[in-house]
Simulated scan of single mutants.
Amino acid sequence: MPEQHDVDSATRNPREAFGEALRDARKQRRSGRISQSDLGRLSHTSKSTISRIEGGVPPIASHLPALFDQIFETDGHFKRLYEDVVDQSFPAQFRRRMIMERQATAIWEWSPTVVPGLFQTAEYARALFRTGTSRPSEEEVAALTRTRITRQELLKDAPTDIRAVLCESVIRRRFGSRDMVREQLATLLRHGERPTTRVQVLPLDAEPHALIDGPVSLLTTPNHASVVCVEAFRTANIIEDPEEVRTVIRVYDDLMGEALSARESAAVIREQMESL
């Protein structure tokens, strides 16, 4: 049975739903109603920011929902509402993928081109978004980057099992400043040190394989089913056919076997960092 906020947010703009919930919480606080100025002080922001959020005007800083939950003792209510806001900023298939991603018990990533979104630094993400064919404004780039970084919250919650196999070209590719690339590689190393995460590099001279032409994500759901998420130019597709999914799993298993070990991969990443 979905929670009431899920039903409400399905019929309202998620930003408006968030703003209304914040206004209601402020007025109905257990220990006494507080003003926008008081809430701004408690959440280390300003009255104008609280007023803007309650009015449904973007953006909502990603750290604020957790603070609101702490202040109002709402047990993750604002965090869930914020997830609705983030999801709504994506086309339907992307939204569905993000919901499944948050619920997944395991995420296996393959990327032949760029660092997967779950591992991207803000600067790396910004550099990618600035190359968009729609020539996004700096405001749009900033909003897209906030959304990308918010996706990474799942890494802080449940111990999701994450595997990432990256083509060596992802490690060698340079765009933007040396400092930006170096920080991105350092972030990859830090993720690889987590007990629930493995990062492997597929050498450039590896044999051709069926996934060579694009990134793929394999998500395992809580009921142990697997789906394949494929992204291409401005499109996303979710494959659920069991036979197709099994085929992708077999290819991914082969990729992990062909890739360098986690320790060898870390050494390659460190070597590239030192060469910058």
Score class of each variant (00 low, 15 high):
T133W: 03
L204F: 04
C167E: 07
M98L: 15
V268R: 03
R96Y: 09
N13A: 11
R246F: 07
I34Q: 05
W108D: 15
V114W: 05
L185V: 12
G19D: 01
S275R: 10
S43A: 15
T247W: 00
N237I: 12
V7K: 09
S177P: 04
G19K: 02
A232R: 10
R41G: 11
R41L: 13
S261K: 05
P208D: 07
L118G: 08
A25H: 01
Y124T: 10
S89H: 07
V216N: 06
M100Y: 09
Q88R: 03
Q200V: 09
A259W: 01
R190S: 04
L42R: 07
T49P: 01
P195V: 07
T113H: 07
R250M: 10
V141D: 03
V85F: 01
E83T: 14
H77M: 06
G257Y: 00
R33N: 13
A127K: 01
V228P: 03
L67I: 15
E139W: 01
T220M: 09
I53L: 00
S111Q: 06
A186Q: 05
I71Y: 06
S275N: 03
A164E: 00
R250Y: 08
A266W: 00
W110S: 14
T49M: 12
E73W: 01
P159K: 02
D254K: 08
T121R: 00
D241G: 10
T196W: 01
R182H: 05
A206K: 02
T221A: 14
S37R: 02
M180P: 05
L218N: 09
L154N: 01
D69G: 11
V216F: 13
E274D: 15
V170M: 06
S134P: 00
R246L: 11
A225P: 02
L166Y: 03
D179A: 15
Q200R: 07
S31I: 07
G176K: 00
K156C: 10
M256G: 14
F175R: 07
R95P: 03
T74N: 05
V201H: 06
T121L: 11
E83Q: 12
N237Q: 14
C167L: 04
Q272W: 07
R270F: 07
P159D: 11
E20P: 02
A210N: 00
A17V: 01
I249S: 13
V216H: 05
A266M: 04
A232M: 10
I238H: 04
H44K: 08
I99T: 13
D84Y: 01
E244W: 00
A142H: 06
S51M: 02
S169I: 14
G132Q: 02
I238F: 08
L22Q: 04
V85D: 01
G32M: 07
L166S: 13
K47N: 10
L260N: 04
S137W: 02
H191D: 06
K79R: 06
A210E: 14
I71R: 06
A125S: 12
S35L: 04
P136I: 15
K156A: 15
W108Q: 12
I212F: 08
I238Y: 05
R135S: 15
E240N: 10
A10W: 00
P208E: 10
T45L: 05
R15P: 01
L219G: 10
F90R: 05
